[in-house]
Amino acid sequence: MITERSSRRSQENSSGYGTDTRGHALRLDDVTKVYGKNGRGVRALDGVSVTIERGSYTAVMGPSGSGKSTFLHCAAGLDKPTTGTSYIGDTKLNDLSETKLTKLRRQRVGFVFQAFNLIPSLSVLQNVELPVRLSGESVDKAWLEEILTRVGLGGRAKHRPAELSGGQQQRVAIARALITRPDVIFGDEPTGALDTVTAKEILSLLRACVNETGQTVVMVTHDPIAAAYADTVLFLADGKLAGRMDSPTADRVAERMTHLGAWA
């Protein structure tokens, strides 16, 4: 069971943004996203370019309305940019049909949301293996057992979500995100519904996924303490990339947040 926080990756393996795409898990090239038409559109993202390397842990932060959720949606193939290009690995997402995007998300992207999004009628094991089943593929039983053990649910495989604590349900969600060995796991406020002790356990688990299995994690959060578990923090303000911080601490992140957008 992984509960202790692992040491942060070396600076050489931390994520970055720019034009270097060697070994990248995802990339946005000059991405703009506008909602609405007829001159009344809201520019949620405004020319964002970012490259996130494989095997890195990146937190995305910014004030309310800064574009964090839109960033995640465009990066994960949940939404298409108005202009610019988004990639998962070397796959260009812009030109994929909805059917192909759905297949890509099932096979190459993992999601961990604040609300867990588990199916109440399914067991832990069935929830975890669901993305593989939906893809029409056979489940690697050895990998499934390893994941359940890694997230501390080896003895809970037959339980249903209602029989688990909030922290255990989020562990199920993380295991489900890992089952397809995705290019990247996206977390959208994954600890927002948890108490501080449980949140620390979940953040440590995500950190261990990076350190021990080489997973790539991109997490949207409002919490400087959560962001401090990452290798790098990307800051957004008014839809623009407003900076980055390597080897973040909670205090440094909190101080930087007071100088973003309208808060500056």
Rank of each mutant, 00 (worst) to 15 (best):
G55P: 06
G55N: 03
G62F: 09
G62Q: 08
G62D: 09
P63T: 09
G67F: 07
G67Y: 06
S69Y: 08
T70G: 06
F71E: 03
H73R: 06
H73F: 08
A75K: 01
A76F: 02
A76S: 13
P81D: 00
T82E: 12
G84A: 06
G84V: 03
T85D: 14
S86Y: 04
Y87L: 12
I88W: 10
I88A: 12
G89K: 05
D90Q: 15
L93A: 11
E98H: 13
E98W: 03
T99I: 12
K100I: 00
K100L: 06
K100A: 13
K100D: 15
L104P: 06
L104F: 09
R106T: 10
Q107C: 08
R108F: 11
A115V: 02
F116K: 07
L118V: 10
I119Y: 08
L122D: 02
S123E: 05
S123C: 04
S123A: 08
Q126L: 03
Q126T: 03
E129L: 06
L130R: 10
S135V: 00
S135Y: 01
G136C: 06
E137V: 02
S138I: 10
D140I: 00
K141P: 00
W143N: 05
W143A: 08
W143I: 01
E145C: 02
E145T: 11
E146R: 07
R150V: 01
L153G: 02
G154M: 02
G155L: 07
R156W: 13
R160W: 05
R160F: 13
R160A: 09
L164I: 10
S165F: 15
S165H: 15
G166H: 12
G166V: 10
Q168W: 08
Q168R: 07
Q169L: 11
Q169H: 12
Q169M: 15
R171N: 06
V172T: 12
I174Q: 07
A175Y: 08
A175P: 13
A175E: 12
R176E: 07
I179D: 00
R181T: 01
P182D: 05
V184C: 09
F186L: 03
F186W: 06
P190V: 11
T191Y: 12
G192W: 14
D195T: 13
T196I: 11
V197P: 07
A199S: 15
K200N: 15
